[in-house]
């Protein structure tokens, strides 16, 4: 790794000393500064798709995704501004309106990251019309289910399955608003032979889109704290550690 120099920069006025190979998001978290995210998942490759972690950098009007941006010496980053809050609420607006998110009957009610962010940002209603698409539910797997109505296409499941489990059962097909998470070659999940039924995707999923069967409304608690440990173990095994 070439990037290993120590630099100093600022996040929300706070002085931060950092290695150049850490992203602004990682550094913010290490320093107790919360930046909202949905697609980011510690221990897998950042995706940069949800656009919630966008931050402002002094001296440019461009916004940068904190999860994929590396700091530079002297950089001054703002994570909370009126503009950013407006955009973040608009992103949530678009997500809530895109599919059929009905919190009150969702397995993840109360434990959902999308719902949680709406709460955190003081969102009281959705400002754009609902698209009301007709979407299927895949209950073909013996232990788990996939409800496309609640999927926000963050691809955490795709990445965790590919990078940590190594199965690459999940991927995305179609494009734009018609994009869908698919198992293997768009087969019912229960027939996807690459699936090891490890359930990491379910735990990684920020909403109730992937869930354990048998869980009723508000009973699905996701746990993904263990993923970084797995990733760490893998790194050791591959001999691809920090230095």
């Amino acid at each position: 790794m070439k990037r290993s120099q120590i630099i100093t920069f600022k996040i929300d006025g706070q002085d931060i000393a950092a290695r150049e190979d850490e992203t602004i998001l990682e550094l913010a978290r290490q320093n107790g500064i919360r930046i909202p995210t949905l697609c980011y998942l510690e221990s897998v490759t950042p995706w940069g798709g949800c656009r919630l972690c966008m931050v402002e950098v002094k001296g440019t009007t461009r916004l940068f995704p904190a999860c994929m941006t590396y700091p530079q010496e002297g950089m001054e980053v703002s994570t909370v501004t009126e503009q950013l809050t407006t955009y973040r609420k608009q992103v949530l607006d678009l997500l809530f309106a895109e599919r059929n998110h009905v919190c009150s009957v969702c397995v993840s009610n109360g434990a959902c990251e999308l719902q949680g962010l709406a709460y955190e940002l003081g969102m009281t209603h959705v400002g754009v019309p609902y698209l009301n698409p007709s979407l299927p539910l895949d209950a073909s797997h013996p232990y788990f289910g996939l409800d496309h109505n609640r999927c926000i296409l963050c691809t955490r499941c795709v990445r965790v399955c590919d990078e940590i489990e190594g199965a690459h059962t999940w991927d995305v097909m179609g494009r734009g608003v018609d994009a869908r998470i698919v198992a293997d070659l768009n087969q019912p999940w229960g027939e996807a032979i690459s699936c090891t039924s490890c359930g990491k995707c379910v735990q990684a999923c920020p909403t109730g889109a992937l869930f354990e069967k048998g869980k009723s409304v508000a009973e699905m608690q996701k746990r993904h704290e263990f993923l970084p440990y797995l990733a760490l173990m893998r790194e050791g095994r591959d001999g691809d550690s920090e230095q």
């Binding site: 940069g48 608009q90 992103v91 678009l94 494009r175 734009g176 608003v177 994009a179």
Partner: peptide, 21 residues
């Protein structure tokens, strides 16, 4: 743009649909 959006980022994927409507 709506039909050509890849669907990776939220603003383009859903924003273009809303703007089109």
């Amino acid at each position: 743009c709506m039909t050509e959006s890849c669907g990776k980022c939220v603003p383009c994927r859903v924003g273009t649909v809303q703007m089109y409507h």
